[in-house]
Amino acid sequence: MRLTLNIWRQKSANEPGKMVKYDVPGVSEHMSFLEMLDVLNQRLIKQGDDPVVFEHDCREGICGCCGFMIDGVPHGPQRGTTVCQLHMRYFKDGDELYLEPFRAEAFPVVKDLLIDRSAFDRIIAAGGYVSVNTGSPQDANSLPIMKQCADMSMDAASCIGCGACVAACPNASAMLFVSAKISHLGLLPQGQPERDRRALRMLAQLQEEAFGACTNYGECEAACPKGIKLENIARMNRDYLKAALSYREEASAGGAA
């Protein structure tokens, strides 16, 4: 099949970008979307043009590197699929597509379709963990965990941190991402001691970054390639509210040991 692609080209963060039209003939239905772009890039290089920059690594839908907008939809039209796993059989001959980077103030464009998502790392660093040093734990089976809790925790933990939720949200909110981590850890007994502190600190960092607020559009859930549920945001809000009302940083009495 033959496609027409309109791709956002931007040389660097500080330069203006623009849409450039490309004719892409000879696309096989068995190609992945990124393989189709590979073929285009090989041609561009041979012509002496700059290839289109896009982020990708595992190409198995798990590393979370890839992602851009196809016709205004993060990762493209197939639900529950990252763009690296999207295959060309879902398109047809003559289609004209528009490819843009994920748009959000907190995700500045680095080049073409590649963006800076380091805000996500800073949010995790603010509290998205259990504080346990290597070597200190007890036997793994000493604390039974209800299967249902472990399964729900796993559902939330499946987040790959790609940023599609932010790109889909009219407010560029990162609530689905943050709530997935808060749920993953908050549903497990290991996550309880720091549950209040985690909610307060992660949300404080969220506000430091340029993400918007959640106003319940639900676009994030629809765009998530891993099926992270909106109910996580409700859980996060409960955690945050409770923590905001009851938690205070302990002042150390000092002098111990």
Partner: peptide, 16 residues
């Protein structure tokens, strides 16, 4: 042991 303490959600049986 370490991974469970970190909150890795390994698969579990009904008994926990």
């Amino acid at each position: 042991d370490q991974c469970v303490a970190q909150g890795v959600p390994f698969a579990r049986e009904y008994g926990g």
